[in-house]
Amino acid sequence: MNTDGSDRKTIVSDCHLPDGIVVDAAAGYIYWTNMGIPSLNDGSVERADIDGKNRKTIVALGSTHSPKQIILDKKSGKLYWCDREGMRVMRCNIDGSKLETLIETGRGEADSRDATRWCVGLAIDPKHQKIYWSQKGPDNAGLGRISRANVEIPAGQTATTRTDIEIFYDALPEPIDLELDHKNRVLYWTDRGDPPRGNTVNRASIDNRPAEPEIVVTHLMEGIGIALDIPHDRMFVTDFAGSIFSARLDGSSERNVLEAQGNLTGIAYAEV
């Protein structure tokens, strides 16, 4: 749809609980994750043309457990995503080949019941080759965190043993999707926990991290997806109550673009 909510159309249907989405406008593709049913380990990643045609599964059912936010690093030709109950940060080539696990926070059914291990949203800082990701934590437990590490696993280490992981913020309500303003070096994220710190959009400098993140949008109903349009000083946010909001990057001029659309998750902004 247009950014004012007009010209809205369905381009792909019959997805298996779709969640994250990213657009490669130059190549004319959209990519999205299908969470599947978490208890069945049947997540997947699909690709289609921007108009929804030529749909293709590029990461087969079960090769990823319950994939969430997905991002594209065009320079390296890689797709990255978080796998929630799989407790992993994963990547592959844009055609689905060379599937890898970069970070693994747990393994097995017992670990998967521990929501502090659930990886949900992610962003990449290409300048310093760092990857940021969120771990949701239990509902409203204040145990959510955002961590960062090098994109590449250190030599001689594995996705489970790597020692370069550092916590960016912890004791968060329930951090979900991340977006990085590369120009201004600021990380934005949604939080679906309870107020006052949850149901919000937050931001913080990644080079000069403040003691507490700045809350720029409040009163969401379980915020999930976020997309930034830096040149036009605006963001777009979805929540689980079915609304799409737009606002300036400082949270001002907030307006509801759509409402009552069902459980909304991922969102992407693209000029096509």
Score class of each variant (00 low, 15 high):
11 I>E: 06
12 V>W: 04
13 S>G: 11
14 D>L: 08
15 C>M: 12
23 V>D: 03
24 D>A: 12
34 N>A: 11
35 M>C: 09
36 G>S: 05
37 I>D: 14
42 D>S: 14
47 R>P: 01
56 K>N: 11
60 A>H: 10
67 P>T: 07
82 C>L: 07
82 C>Y: 00
84 R>E: 12
86 G>M: 07
89 V>N: 06
93 N>I: 05
100 E>C: 05
102 L>K: 02
109 E>D: 13
124 I>S: 04
126 P>G: 12
134 S>E: 05
135 Q>C: 14
137 G>L: 01
142 G>T: 06
145 R>G: 04
150 N>F: 00
152 E>L: 11
159 A>D: 13
161 T>E: 03
161 T>M: 03
163 T>D: 15
177 D>K: 04
180 L>W: 00
180 L>P: 04
191 D>A: 11
202 N>W: 02
208 N>P: 02
215 I>S: 07
218 T>Y: 10
220 L>I: 04
221 M>K: 15
225 G>Q: 08
227 A>Y: 01
229 D>G: 09
230 I>K: 08
231 P>M: 08
233 D>N: 15
237 V>P: 03
242 G>V: 04
244 I>G: 10
245 F>N: 11
245 F>P: 03
246 S>G: 12
249 L>K: 13
250 D>T: 12
251 G>Y: 04
263 N>G: 10
263 N>R: 15
266 G>A: 09
267 I>N: 02
269 Y>I: 11
